[in-house]
Design a protein around this nucleic acid. Structure first.
Lengths: 330, 330
DNA sequence: TTAGGATATGGAATCGATTTCATCATAAAC
DNA sequence: GTTTATGATGAAATCGATTCCATATCCTAA
């Protein structure tokens, strides 16, 4: 593999000149520029990014840590990150924690060792250690999707309001007994959405039945289990609020298994849409988050920090959700 | 950020000794070992992987290049790669080409510059240049999912036989006019599956109607378009064979739009299952590929090459598909 | 005419690890 | 009682780039 020295020798210049030509930094006459470029082409030279990064202390690489790469929501966020990063010449290393704190810890350490220039992080569970370690190292980080109790740049959606609207929508359709199927209590999106749900009920003067509020995890499996439990509650609720797409899918399957129709026997609303590429016929009433934009905005914020711009104080970007009414809510 | 020199100083030893302790290479007395470890802990030292990689010429990193990360099939392959790599202490950098040759070229170059130790590659389109560039650099690479006309380690499924079985299944149900909805002619999986389809028809003595064979791309959109076209063919076919999951989804949507029921008005079989986390009620008859295992096997093969093992000749691993009969085929 | 700036280029140090080679005990072998 | 492994450690070179500092033109403004 040819190095910058080989190119230099062939072009009859010093390595530093090759560097200057390739990076378009400093001066170089048209003649040397030419000679260097032909030498590069003839040798098939490619710079070694490890050496570059070691010396320049910049890797042009961002770390992206998400909690569930099998969920299209996160895939879409990742594309937003990827595209925004690409525009500025950055590449992205994607890591998946499966909501596990130990995996998160491992990956963050690895990315730190790889000297990524910044992080887009979805904090797993309620573990702040990884986030704090990044911040302590002085590496810029933008938190996505979730609130954290420490100062940090962040991009998320207004979960509470989105949940409020979904619940309100069900109330308007006459539902009074609405169950909430949520994720782990340690995740802010799970609790915020339940808070919005509660507030909507209270504002409507409908008493909150704690037996109808479930906390499990953001998975299809959990959705199935919670729904299996919910249909046993007496009197049975007439509507379900699933706080994410996977929980909703699990809920539908459980309802089918129980012989209940949506929405005739049980209305259903959910957070997070599913992409049209995966869905045959959209019928879920949802509060959808602008996943792509979330990734994009987070990355832009991160890159602006890397460019040294921005104020001192953490920036919090809160995007609105969009309510899409379909047949599942009756 | 503390370096190995800082640790060495604090522990009262030479940097090389710290390296030896940390990598468990060479000798080190229990006493120094102890001192180094406490120094590491006190300083919160983490090795710089760029420096390590630069010097040792090994990054413990694999490049994974896939064609469509929004397709759960590839997500699953990626998990297989990730897990297998992780077991051996390797990390994975995932890149998505969207079947674009220029993106593939860019990413492969980038990964080469980042000095990845090896590649798991799904060649985009019919562009071999990227693959050849990797091989020319002497970097081990395993091709996944597709056949290529150059010697290379590879892992894929027996597309032709899978397609044969699916078509045969439709024939057994009495269908005689079966359309094939395929991807790009430049991709071996697209053509192999059509070959299997043809062979099944011929073996059954059913004439092949070229108007019923479509080549577009592996997307939901293409599936929709091809199906819209297919229902106009006269006499209309009674069954469809979609060569991947996304085409199948597009087909179902197009059939609904045309007011046709599955399977009553049109039977449907497809390649590639969709994960249960995304599907409410599985009803597609499919030939499914062991996606996770494909990623895993490819990675194991790659890692064995990295370890210097294996014979000289390229290894080709061809896995069988599994036929799962559900309601969509009648 | 000369000081000073823009242009053009190179030498040497540096980034933070590992590798190679060398040194020196200490214990085992003849 | 010398020779020879084995254990333990370090000095210096090295990986392949960039950064910093120095040098030398050439041109222009004072």
């Amino acid at each position: 593999m040819p190095t910058i020295y080989d190119v230099a020798e062939r072009a009859g210049v010093a390595p530093v000149t090759v560097s200057r030509v390739l990076n378009n930094s400093g001066y170089a006459s048209e003649a040397t520029r030419q000679r260097v470029e032909t030498a590069v082409a003839e040798l098939g030279y490619t710079p070694n990014r490890l050496a570059q990064g070691l010396r320049s202390k910049q890797t042009q690489t961002l770390g992206l840590v998400v909690t569930d790469i099998t969920n299209p929501f996160w895939t879409t966020v990742a594309r937003g990150v990827e595209d925004a990063a690409h525009l500025e010449g950055f590449s992205v290393v994607l890591c998946n924690t499966d909501e596990s704190e130990s995996k998160q810890s491992q990956y963050v350490d690895l990315l730190l060792q790889k000297q990524v220039d910044g992080f887009v992080l979805v904090p797993a569970g309620n573990d702040l250690k990884a986030l704090l370690r990044i911040q302590k190292r002085g590496v810029p980080v933008v938190v996505v999707d979730r609130r954290v109790p420490v100062p940090a740049d962040s991009v998320r959606c207004d979960s509470e309001t989105g949940a409020y609207h979904l619940t309100q929508h069900l109330l308007e359709r006459g539902h009074r007994r609405i169950a909430a199927l949520s994720g782990s209590r340690t995740v802010s999106t799970a609790t915020d959405r339940v808070t919005g749900y509660r507030r909507a009920l209270e504002d409507a003067g409908v008493p909150v039945d704690e037996r109808l509020i479930f906390h499990r995890s953001f998975t299809q499996q959990a959705g199935y289990e919670m729904t299996t439990a919910v249909v046993e509650v007496s009197p049975r609720p007439t509507a379900l609020f699933a706080v994410n797409n996977f929980i909703a899918i699990g809920a539908i399957r459980a309802l089918r298994a129980a012989g209940l129709r949506v929405p005739e026997d049980m209305a259903l609303v959910a957070f997070d849409d599913l992409p049209l590429t995966l869905i045959i016929e959209p019928f879920l009433t949802v509060a959808s988050q602008p996943a792509y934009e979330m990734g994009q905005r987070a990355t832009e914020l991160l890159l602006s920090r890397l460019a040294g711009g921005g104020e001192e104080n953490p920036v919090e970007i809160v995007l609105p959700t969009v309510l899409t009414v379909r047949s599942s809510s009756g």
